[in-house]
Amino acid sequence: MSRTLGKVANQLLGVRYFIHCSTTGYSFSPLFNSDGEAWRVYNDDDAKALARAVPATSKVVSVAAVTLAYGKKFSGADDVMRGPVLGLVTEDRLLSPISENDDGYSLLFVDDVLHISQTMPGGYDGEYDAPICTGGRKPSESARLVDLGEYLDRPLSLCPHCVAKVTANE
Protein backbone atom coordinates (compact mmCIF):
# COMPACT_ATOMS: atom_id res chain seq x y z
CA MET A 1 0.00 0.00 0.00
CA SER A 2 1.26 3.44 -0.95
CA ARG A 3 1.11 6.08 1.79
CA THR A 4 1.59 9.80 1.26
CA LEU A 5 1.55 12.88 3.43
CA GLY A 6 -1.36 15.27 3.57
CA LYS A 7 -1.72 18.66 5.19
CA VAL A 8 -4.53 20.98 6.16
CA ALA A 9 -4.06 24.71 6.69
CA ASN A 10 -5.99 27.81 7.64
CA GLN A 11 -5.33 30.93 9.71
CA LEU A 12 -7.39 29.66 12.64
CA LEU A 13 -5.69 26.27 12.89
CA GLY A 14 -2.27 26.75 11.35
CA VAL A 15 -0.87 23.68 9.59
CA ARG A 16 -1.61 20.08 10.59
CA TYR A 17 -0.60 16.82 8.88
CA PHE A 18 -2.26 13.47 8.17
CA ILE A 19 -1.42 10.19 6.47
CA HIS A 20 -3.20 9.30 3.22
CA CYS A 21 -3.40 5.87 1.57
CA SER A 22 -3.03 6.45 -2.17
CA THR A 23 -3.95 2.85 -2.94
CA THR A 24 -7.42 2.98 -1.39
CA GLY A 25 -7.96 6.74 -1.56
CA TYR A 26 -8.62 6.75 2.19
CA SER A 27 -7.25 9.49 4.44
CA PHE A 28 -6.61 8.69 8.08
CA SER A 29 -8.43 11.46 9.95
CA PRO A 30 -6.09 12.24 12.92
CA LEU A 31 -4.18 15.51 12.46
CA PHE A 32 -0.64 15.95 13.81
CA ASN A 33 1.33 19.11 14.55
CA SER A 34 4.30 17.84 12.52
CA ASP A 35 4.80 15.53 9.58
CA GLY A 36 7.57 13.73 11.49
CA GLU A 37 5.25 12.88 14.37
CA ALA A 38 2.58 11.52 11.99
CA TRP A 39 5.09 9.22 10.28
CA ARG A 40 6.69 8.16 13.57
CA VAL A 41 3.35 7.04 15.04
CA TYR A 42 2.27 5.37 11.81
CA ASN A 43 5.58 3.54 11.29
CA ASP A 44 6.09 2.51 14.92
CA ASP A 45 2.74 0.84 15.35
CA ASP A 46 -0.19 0.61 12.95
CA ALA A 47 -2.95 2.76 11.50
CA LYS A 48 -5.04 2.42 14.70
CA ALA A 49 -2.19 4.03 16.62
CA LEU A 50 -2.83 7.26 14.73
CA ALA A 51 -6.25 7.68 16.35
CA ARG A 52 -4.91 6.72 19.79
CA ALA A 53 -2.04 9.22 19.48
CA VAL A 54 -4.41 12.13 18.78
CA PRO A 55 -7.65 11.83 20.75
CA ALA A 56 -10.69 13.34 19.04
CA THR A 57 -11.59 16.13 21.45
CA SER A 58 -12.12 19.26 19.36
CA LYS A 59 -15.69 20.36 18.70
CA VAL A 60 -14.79 23.45 16.65
CA VAL A 61 -15.24 22.97 12.90
CA SER A 62 -13.50 25.17 10.34
CA VAL A 63 -12.76 25.24 6.61
CA ALA A 64 -9.17 24.48 5.61
CA ALA A 65 -7.12 23.99 2.47
CA VAL A 66 -6.32 20.26 2.11
CA THR A 67 -3.30 19.19 0.08
CA LEU A 68 -1.63 15.85 -0.69
CA ALA A 69 2.07 15.42 -1.40
CA TYR A 70 3.47 12.96 -3.93
CA GLY A 71 5.49 11.33 -1.20
CA LYS A 72 6.24 11.50 2.49
CA LYS A 73 7.21 15.19 2.59
CA PHE A 74 6.22 18.58 1.19
CA SER A 75 9.28 20.29 -0.20
CA GLY A 76 7.89 22.50 -2.94
CA ALA A 77 4.98 23.21 -5.27
CA ASP A 78 6.11 20.43 -7.62
CA ASP A 79 5.62 17.88 -4.83
CA VAL A 80 1.86 18.47 -4.64
CA MET A 81 -0.19 15.56 -5.93
CA ARG A 82 -3.64 17.00 -5.27
CA GLY A 83 -4.86 20.23 -3.89
CA PRO A 84 -5.36 22.44 -2.36
CA VAL A 85 -9.04 21.66 -2.12
CA LEU A 86 -11.24 23.00 0.63
CA GLY A 87 -12.62 20.72 3.32
CA LEU A 88 -13.89 20.71 6.88
CA VAL A 89 -11.57 20.02 9.81
CA THR A 90 -11.32 20.31 13.57
CA GLU A 91 -8.06 20.92 15.43
CA ASP A 92 -7.50 17.17 15.60
CA ARG A 93 -9.44 15.60 12.73
CA LEU A 94 -9.81 15.80 8.95
CA LEU A 95 -13.58 15.64 8.49
CA SER A 96 -13.91 15.93 4.72
CA PRO A 97 -12.58 12.97 2.79
CA ILE A 98 -10.49 13.88 -0.23
CA SER A 99 -11.36 10.77 -2.17
CA GLU A 100 -12.43 11.14 -5.78
CA ASN A 101 -15.35 8.83 -4.98
CA ASP A 102 -16.77 10.99 -2.19
CA ASP A 103 -18.07 14.54 -2.46
CA GLY A 104 -17.37 15.16 1.21
CA TYR A 105 -19.18 17.78 3.19
CA SER A 106 -20.64 21.08 2.07
CA LEU A 107 -22.18 24.00 3.89
CA LEU A 108 -25.89 24.68 3.47
CA PHE A 109 -28.02 27.53 4.79
CA VAL A 110 -31.51 26.32 5.70
CA ASP A 111 -33.90 28.82 7.30
CA ASP A 112 -31.00 31.09 8.37
CA VAL A 113 -29.06 28.24 10.04
CA LEU A 114 -25.72 27.09 8.63
CA HIS A 115 -25.58 23.29 8.39
CA ILE A 116 -23.00 20.73 7.34
CA SER A 117 -24.50 18.86 4.40
CA GLN A 118 -23.88 15.97 2.07
CA THR A 119 -25.12 15.22 -1.41
CA MET A 120 -27.93 12.66 -1.35
CA PRO A 121 -29.32 10.61 -4.24
CA GLY A 122 -32.87 11.39 -5.34
CA GLY A 123 -35.03 14.29 -6.40
CA TYR A 124 -35.83 15.41 -9.93
CA ASP A 125 -32.24 16.17 -10.87
CA GLY A 126 -30.89 12.94 -9.40
CA GLU A 127 -29.42 14.39 -6.19
CA TYR A 128 -29.81 17.11 -3.60
CA ASP A 129 -27.88 18.48 -0.62
CA ALA A 130 -29.26 17.75 2.86
CA PRO A 131 -28.09 18.70 6.34
CA ILE A 132 -26.42 15.76 8.04
CA CYS A 133 -28.50 16.35 11.17
CA THR A 134 -31.75 15.52 9.35
CA GLY A 135 -30.90 11.98 8.32
CA GLY A 136 -30.86 12.86 4.63
CA ARG A 137 -34.30 14.48 4.43
CA LYS A 138 -34.55 17.04 1.66
CA PRO A 139 -34.50 20.59 3.07
CA SER A 140 -36.92 23.38 2.27
CA GLU A 141 -36.77 25.14 -1.08
CA SER A 142 -35.10 28.11 0.63
CA ALA A 143 -31.92 26.07 1.25
CA ARG A 144 -28.80 27.63 -0.26
CA LEU A 145 -25.47 25.91 -0.79
CA VAL A 146 -22.51 27.96 0.41
CA ASP A 147 -19.07 27.98 -1.18
CA LEU A 148 -16.55 26.68 1.38
CA GLY A 149 -14.19 29.43 0.22
CA GLU A 150 -16.46 32.02 1.84
CA TYR A 151 -15.52 30.57 5.24
CA LEU A 152 -11.82 29.85 4.81
CA ASP A 153 -10.02 31.54 7.72
CA ARG A 154 -13.32 32.56 9.31
CA PRO A 155 -15.09 31.02 12.30
CA LEU A 156 -18.21 29.00 11.54
CA SER A 157 -21.45 29.33 13.46
CA LEU A 158 -22.89 25.90 12.69
CA CYS A 159 -25.96 23.92 13.67
CA PRO A 160 -24.94 22.22 16.94
CA HIS A 161 -26.57 18.94 15.85
CA CYS A 162 -24.41 18.84 12.70
CA VAL A 163 -21.27 19.56 14.75
CA ALA A 164 -22.19 16.79 17.19
CA LYS A 165 -22.55 14.33 14.31
CA VAL A 166 -19.17 15.05 12.73
CA THR A 167 -17.25 15.31 15.99
CA ALA A 168 -18.59 12.18 17.67
CA ASN A 169 -15.71 10.10 18.98
CA GLU A 170 -14.44 7.39 16.63
Rank of each mutant, 00 (worst) to 15 (best):
P131R: 04
P55G: 03
N169R: 09
V146N: 10
P97Y: 07
R93F: 13
G126H: 11
A49W: 06
N169E: 13
G25W: 02
K138E: 15
D44I: 09
A65V: 03
D79G: 11
M1S: 08
P97K: 02
M1P: 11
V85W: 01
G83L: 05
N101Q: 10
K7I: 03
R40T: 03
Y151S: 04
F32K: 00
E141P: 11
I98P: 00
L88S: 00
P30C: 15
A168W: 08
A65M: 05
E127S: 11
T57G: 00
L88E: 06
P30F: 11
S142R: 09
F32T: 03
D44P: 06
G104I: 12
L148A: 02
Y105C: 01
A77T: 06
S29P: 07
A130C: 15
S142W: 09
L95W: 15
Q11E: 14
D125A: 09
A51H: 02
R52D: 09
S27A: 13
V15N: 03
I132W: 14
F18V: 00
C159A: 08
E100C: 06
L158H: 08
K7T: 02
T24V: 05
A38H: 01
V163I: 12
T119F: 11
L86V: 04
L86M: 12
P55A: 00
L114N: 08
R40D: 13
R16E: 00
P55Q: 09
G83T: 07
D35E: 15
F32Y: 02
H115N: 15
S75C: 12
M81A: 09
N101H: 14
Y151H: 14
Y128Q: 06
D46A: 11
L13Q: 11
S106H: 10
K165M: 13
A69K: 06
D147L: 07
D79K: 11
V41W: 03
L156E: 09
K72C: 03
P121L: 14
T134S: 08
A53I: 14
E150I: 09
S2G: 07
L94Y: 02
